[in-house]
Design a protein around this nucleic acid. Structure first.
Lengths: 225, 225, 225, 225
DNA sequence: CATGAATGAGAGTTCATTCAT
DNA sequence: CATGAATGAACTCTCATTCAT
């Protein structure tokens, strides 16, 4: 007989429903254009209850960012096994990243677009997540350099820039993939992996990086035919 | 004795002042949080005059995007000479890009962050610019492939992904550089050029791309010592 | 000790208070000159509450028209008994009409003056009421013609013009009576009844229409002494 | 080569052009919705010039009312010859009235609708005109009564009411005729003349007032066949 | 616990009106 | 004379937020 409006749910559950609704609305409309009315309605509760549990619009937005940032980093962390070679680690991380962002486009919109343009407080929340990922990538680069028998003490700023560029490329690619029908997470990961590992120069010379044995069901996108 | 509030200026001049103020406020606060009052005050005029000349908040924002997008593409176009080799073209383009974005951080914020999240109309304006740059990069990739004696018919979707990743990386890097004190445009360009041209793999093996004879006043950032 | 500002009233009651205030302000100032601020203040509530319940200035105005039009037609309908002779029906209708308009001058101003000059939407609302009254009068004329043994098929356009003239005279007379101190509803009704039923010609010849036994407390206004 | 924008016209001419434009705009939009910008543009002059000549929006509106009221009363006055019988005088007056209002619908809208709802000042202007017409009608009634050998001292209030009703009927009929395609001034005049002179009662008995020899090209509308 | 009732503050927008040239 | 430049004031409407029940 339609949706049953369940009453008297435990607080923790209600809070999650509110956050679900908030992420969807914030992701679609943006922070400022989102209205508490709409969020409360989508969550199926009254507005004062939202305030009772989450305090204010800012706090609600912060809670969204925190929850979604944790979920994304957890997804990437789970996808990577540190006992594997570094290139495999990078591949697994990218795949986990693009998979998660494509499964939760509103959440990604909140983290990537909305949070960065509304006040230092929100940016700080996102940066906590971002730094964890950048740190992971930075460490990969350092380890890779060491394995290549090269001086492990790469200039810090240089490594930071490289990691930043890689993460930034991934973020932009994720937004583009979400907005472009037909682009799979695996394709995005392959494109960026090729780009990052081999560089345009090597790609031109026919030496793309190839994910070996990463599941046969769909070969990574390659430059050469 | 301080700022002289000049009155009765010709329309064209006043319009530019308004756009200057609008870009700064939009860049700082974001489209929705920016108020027409604040913009008018910063421009040194009354609010009705802003409406008389620019019609509405949306039109004002659109005018900002158009002006700044044109300025950025013009800067890049001017910086590149097509008779030079492709790697040099990419380098010059990157340098012009990072130089311009670092000189006009608010404008870059408007184009990169604000414009992308407020309605299809604004996105379309930015995309016109973005596509010009992506087209430039795409053509560089195709030419590079041809010069490397490889099949010039790279898969379209693949090239689009690569260009997107490169432009996305550049955009993120620009935002990061603006937010990180002490990072010069030249350093950003060098980091991305290395990343793009050699790839992480090659970088690890000590084969960075090096901008030859690009002015001695400041050596390009290198990975190796 | 004066007006008690009751708070927390049920929605239906508040809405009527708002409509009361709106009719008064619209009637005094006119649609455009009336401000929502003033209406809200007179209603004893804040402006947002007016918008919450009535949506917009247009909707508020439409609601006023609808309520007052319904009240007026109801008053006329209740005052007339169709089993009586047609002249008596006309008299009763006129008396009910002038009584109602004199008791609710602002409402009459809204219906007669304000609503007719602000957009087709409002005019349509008023016309629905007007047509009901014009139809009533038209039918009276047709029945009267039939009873006078005359061809019942009066030219339609002619009857329409007569009904329009009669209703128009009544409307103008109502406005004039409201603006002229000392004119009672009964006097207005008598004047128009004489005019309509006997015509100036008959009046001149000393043959006014006389409401028989319509209560002795106040004889109808007569032309002759 | 299109409209030539003549410059340096004498003040009196310019003023008339402004009034022409103002009457049209006020008639279409209403007093409040009309903008000085639009009026100035339609008049083909700059806004400050309008203020230089006509002072303010209120003064401009008052000037419109005065001019159009004078034009209307002049038209009626010219149409009537006092040496003719009173019924003929009424007929001629009605015909002149309906002819003028149908030729200048915007002016009539200004006088009939707009002026009555925007402040005492405007109403006073219109009433000056209205009273002249009412006085004319009143005098007709008095003369008619005297000719019918009846007591010439009709109760003043009664005569005023009759005149008001007649003028009100005429006004409503004029508005209705302007809004109803196919209704000529002559038809409106005939309808009202029948109504006024004979009354519904007499009309029912087949005794309409008939304008004798008032031009054969179009017989007056009659109730009987 | 949960909610209908209510609001202070501020947004974008428009307009009659006036200087300075 | 005539006008482009400029504004103070007011408007409709929205929203995050809080009581009282």
């Amino acid at each position: 007989m339609g949706v049953v409006k369940s009453k008297r749910m435990p607080r923790a559950v209600r809070e999650q429903q509110m956050l679900d609704a908030a992420v969807e609305i914030f992701g679609q409309r943006g922070y400022m254009a989102a209205s508490m009315d709409e969020i409360a309605e989508l969550a199926g509760v009254s507005k004062p209850l939202v305030y009772l549990y989450l305090n204010s619009k800012e706090d609600l937005f912060t809670a969204c960012i925190r929850r979604e940032a944790a979920a994304l980093t957890e997804a990437v962390r789970t996808g990577v096994r540190t006992e594997l070679p570094v290139d495999r680690q990078l591949w697994d991380g990218l795949l986990a990243f693009f998979t998660h962002t494509s499964l939760h486009p509103h959440a990604w919109s909140v983290l990537h677009l909305q949070a960065r343009i509304h006040g230092e407080a929100f940016v700080a929340e996102v940066n906590a997540m971002r730094e964890e990922i950048v740190a992971f990538v930075t460490q990969l680069i350092v380890v890779a350099a060491r394995e290549a028998h090269r001086d492990p003490d790469l200039p810090e700023r240089e490594v930071a820039g490289l990691a930043e560029a890689l993460v930034g490329a991934a973020e932009s690619l994720a937004a583009w993939a979400n907005a472009t029908p037909g682009v799979t997470a695996r394709q995005s990961a392959a494109t960026l992996m090729n780009f990052a590992w081999a560089g345009l120069g090597n790609l031109m010379e026919g030496r793309p990086w190839i994910p070996e044995a990463v599941g046969a069901e769909s070969a990574p996108v390659q430059v050469s035919g």
